[in-house]
Design a protein around this nucleic acid. Structure first.
Lengths: 153, 153
DNA sequence: GTATCTGCAAACCATTTGCATAGAT
DNA sequence: ATCTATGCAAATGGTTTGCAGATAC
């Protein structure tokens, strides 16, 4: 990373270091806001725009991947060697996103290209629903429609 | 529609009439902005917020369906009896959205529920790509990355 | 007559941008 | 010394909301 930037005339700064470390520390999915909230407490003055600019940069360098969730929010995930072909389920209760692996989906892109003549450049395959944990919580805690504390992904 | 509203104490206004007619006239997919642009030329003064409020209303009444396209835009489609289980392909060149029917997709929801324990409430299965028409146009008209319609700054 | 709608302007909210300054090389 | 990166504030763009006046019932 450090080298990757330097090779293209870009600079390795304290902020980029912090953001990069924070991302590696999580491993899962994360949002710009969450990264910012975490860092800004320990490092007041950290600008939210720096987070966005750095995430953009990391995306360009293929280190992370931006995943806009239709009508909901935007999350990112690390592009660690994980092979493509995984998709996501987003919990509308707690905001958590988990990956799903359904082989069947992998072949659909080709079918779509053949059948409709599109040159497919990407896809969004995303399910929304309520995760097992939230289902359990809602069952034992009916009436309460809002989750008690809503950590963003 | 008229009756559906009146039965719930809501009013059948000129604006709602116009919007409803315009939607029926199209049959396909449409955006709030497009409806507004069309109506506002013939009926100046028509407020964009009225469009949004009416589309919301029509959605509540299950007359149309809102389809947010991740990271791109939001479109709507009529809820004419078409059974569920059709998905979309969005052309990133011209913004057109077409429906696709791929049987395989229908069964995936169940698989996901079983495998991951989510209570699935919805899904976004959307492919992005370049439609056959735009592919042809781009081929005969290279260099021009933007679609033809280029409004003033 | 009165409660619902409308148009307008202002608010929103996540994200982006302009600019003067700080900082990396 | 140079030129990129940062923080701040202000801009953006699509959508929503508050409000006074207009309109359907």
């Amino acid at each position: 990373m450090k080298d990757l930037l330097r090779d293209t005339g870009m600079r390795w700064t304290r902020q980029r270091q912090l953001i990069y470390d924070e991302i590696l520390r999580r491993k899962g999915h994360f949002s710009a806001e969450v990264i910012w909230k975490k860092l800004t407490t320990r490092h007041p003055g950290m600008g939210l725009s720096t987070i966005y600019r750095t995430l953009q940069l990391l995306e360009d360098k293929k280190i992370i991947k931006r995943i806009p969730i239709a009508g909901e929010t935007t999350i990112y995930e690390c592009e660690d060697g994980t092979p493509h072909g995984h998709h996501h389920i987003f919990c509308t209760e707690c905001g958590k996103t988990i990956e799903m692996h359904v082989d069947m989906l992998d072949s659909i892109e080709e079918i779509v290209m053949e059948k409709y003549g599109f040159e497919i450049s990407g896809h969004t395959v995303m399910f929304n629903g309520i995760c097992p944990e939230c289902r359990a919580r809602l069952k034992s805690d009916p009436g309460d429609d809002e989750p008690e504390n809503n950590p963003l992904p």
